[in-house]
Design a protein around this nucleic acid. Structure first.
Length: 625
DNA sequence: TGTACGATCGTA
DNA sequence: CTCTTACGATCGTACA
């Protein structure tokens, strides 16, 4: 049963619909303020909440302490169904683009007040509603998978700003959109039914929507962040917080050492790369760029202080006091995930750099008193996914633990006598999945191909399909975009009679580049599907663990998670659960069970393991990665 | 004063 | 063969 949510004047329409997409009762219109009460009702809890965009509605429910169990995010589902080859011969895919194709993700509510200053919203009237072609065709051929996300801030309506609180009312679609969610749901369910693999698509859309719920919940709960510890880390590394406009003491010292070493004037600003490079050239350092790996090859007294300067400068500018004030001012870092923000189906993030949280500040991520973290990450997720995708039993066997032996797949590949060292196994597999053609990975590839012919053949076929300009598709049915028009133009011009060598070589390079993209797409995309199923299962299992009794430590998490373990962080193949200490072991068990469940959902009985490394710890930094 | 872009580096 | 994937954030510089 679905409950389709829509804005109806000043109220909210709730329309029951069957799982076949037929009306299952009259639409009721309720006051916006009554939505949370409706959602909390027992029968509603079992329904699938269906809405244009999860971030349009769910934050208001969470703000009232109400969780929903299941959802169907029409925007996310539409994007998948439009692109998937599994639904290519359906009315929805064959029809022209609709308003649903133009929807950009709605950003989560609240956020730092600085948001409006540092991240300019588009003017509502001048929205660059991105070209529809871009959804399936990146504009820039030299950057295969970039550039076709919608603008994360172009949400068709003004973003709430100011005090950072979520509005109680849901924000419906803006008036210039003409979206009929009930009709769209009917069309989507029909499309799934008409597809070549309804089961896979149904699972993918359920997982994608569950991901949207989880992302909203993580934003709502926030990642526990000890500002005092963060400040300690910064002070220890950089010296006390400087006055605005000044360099921290340690950076100033290093800047002086750099100037002294190369006899540069005190006016030399080490932050200006052209100036610094010129001064270094004058001193005969011999550096061609300021890349770390290139500097490391040089032998000159300026290198050491320069590398240290760069490292500290990075900490100061990217995750320093300004970051702390902006993104975690009140003991929680509320990251903004963009579900489906990456073409492969991985999540992106915007604001605060949630997916780039450097290891050296993770010590600030500390559980509330009486609570703890359960940190879990999937070991060698992508090669395991590849083994299962290709149904390569020998490769799956290499990753399966026997009699408590290592669960490390790379070690298993060594043990199977395929390659000499773990490092070779790792580099070889990465090369196979990324399309590496040089160095160790290329040397080892033939051995892998002999040992695991099915797996290597799968990625090779994906690469060749991409080189032909075809789509490739993940296990559950997410299809890659097609290369853009400029791609085809370059390919075509390379066949001209008078095509120069440069044109031909550019076409060849571009072809291979797209092949590497599609090669990686099937593996990264399927791994992302496994991860979506994993978190979907985790959040359901955590809720099922129930509530602590009222004497137990309540923690500082907001309702409805104040007495319950809840997800607070997700990073591609890793999750962090914030849990009452007494429940840590139970949580760890559920997280492992969820990984097994995800494996079965994607690959059925195929004998592949997805072992986790799980740590129970007060501080995120103590979970070794 | 505001916008675009390259270089760089953080994450998986 | 600038030929290992996918991202986001920040800086300074160039330019309008």
């Amino acid at each position: 049963m679905h409950i389709v949510v829509s804005a109806e004047g000043s109220g909210i329409g709730l329309r029951p619909m069957s799982d076949a997409g037929a009306p299952a009762g009259e639409q009721r219109v309720v006051e916006a303020s009554a939505l949370a009460r409706e959602a909390a009702a027992e029968e509603a809890a079992l329904a699938r909440w269906t809405w244009d965009d999860t971030n349009n509605w769910y934050p208001a429910l969470l703000a009232q302490g109400v969780r929903v169990d299941r959802a169907h995010d029409l925007r996310l589902a539409h994007a998948v169904l439009r692109a998937s080859v599994l639904s290519a011969r359906t009315a929805l895919a064959e029809a022209g683009p609709t308003a649903w194709d133009r929807l950009a993700p709605v950003p989560p509510p609240g956020g730092p007040t600085a948001t409006a200053l540092t991240r300019p919203d588009r003017h509502p009237g001048s929205e660059p509603l991105f070209d529809l072609g871009e959804i399936s065709a990146p504009a820039r051929a030299d950057r295969p998978a970039g550039d076709h996300r919608g603008n994360g801030r172009a949400n068709g309506g003004a973003r709430e700003q100011g005090d950072g609180r979520a509005p109680v009312e849901g924000r419906g679609p803006s008036p210039d959109n003409h979206l009929d969610p009930a009709a769209e749901l009917t069309a989507q369910l029909r499309t799934i039914k008409d597809s070549t693999e309804p089961g896979r698509l149904r699972l993918l859309l359920a997982a994608e929507s569950a991901g949207a719920l989880a992302a909203a919940e993580m934003h709502h709960a926030g990642l526990p962040w000890r500002g005092d510890i963060h400040d300690e880390i910064l002070t220890e590394a950089l010296g006390p917080r400087p006055r605005p406009g000044a360099r921290p003491a340690k950076l100033e010292d290093l800047a002086n050492r750099i100037r002294d070493t190369i006899d540069a004037p005190p006016t030399l600003n080490p932050d200006s790369h052209p100036d610094l490079l010129r001064a270094m050239e004058y001193a005969g350092v011999g550096a061609r760029s300021l890349r770390k790996w290139e500097l490391e090859k040089l032998d000159h007294p300026v290198i050491a202080p320069l590398l240290e300067y760069k490292g500290l400068y990075r900490l100061y500018t990217a995750n320093g006091w300004n970051w702390l004030d902006t993104w975690a001012p009140d003991g929680r870092f509320r990251m903004e995930y963009v579900v489906g923000g990456v073409v492969t189906g991985r999540w992106a993030s915007t604001g605060g750099g949630a997916l780039q949280l450097p290891h050296n500040v993770r010590r600030a991520v500390t559980a509330d008193p009486g609570w703890t973290f359960v940190v879990a990450d999937a070991a060698q997720l992508e090669p395991r996914v590849l083994a299962a995708l290709a149904r390569d039993e020998r490769m799956a066997t290499a990753g399966r633990s026997k009699d408590g032996a290592s669960t490390d797949m790379y070690a298993g590949i060594v043990a199977a006598g395929v390659v000499d060292s773990r490092e070779h196994a790792k580099l070889g597999m990465l090369g196979a999945m990324y399309g590496g053609t040089t160095g160790v990975s290329a040397q080892v590839l033939p051995r892998l191909a002999r040992a695991f012919p099915h797996a290597i053949d799968l990625v090779e076929r994906a690469a060749r399909a991409g080189e032909r300009g075809e789509k490739v598709t993940t296990r559950l049915g997410r299809s890659s975009p097609l290369p853009g028009d400029s791609w085809a133009a370059v390919q075509g011009s390379a066949f001209d009679e008078d095509a120069g060598a440069d044109v031909q070589s550019r076409a060849r390079s571009q072809t291979r580049s797209w092949g590497r993209f599609t090669r990686n797409f099937v593996v990264q995309g399927t791994a992302a599907e496994w991860a979506l199923c994993w978190i979907a299962s985790i959040r359901r299992r955590l809720w099922a663990l129930g509530e602590l009794s009222s004497e137990s430590p309540q923690g500082l998490a907001p309702a409805p998670f104040d007495r319950r373990p809840h997800l607070v962080f997700f990073l591609h193949d890793e999750v962090v659960v914030h849990a009452p200490a007494a429940l840590a072991e139970a949580v760890a068990q559920e997280v492992r069970a969820a990984a097994d469940e995800a494996g079965r959902l994607l690959f059925g009985d195929f004998p592949v393991d997805f072992p986790l490394s799980v740590a129970v710890t007060e501080s995120y930094a103590d979970a070794k990665d």
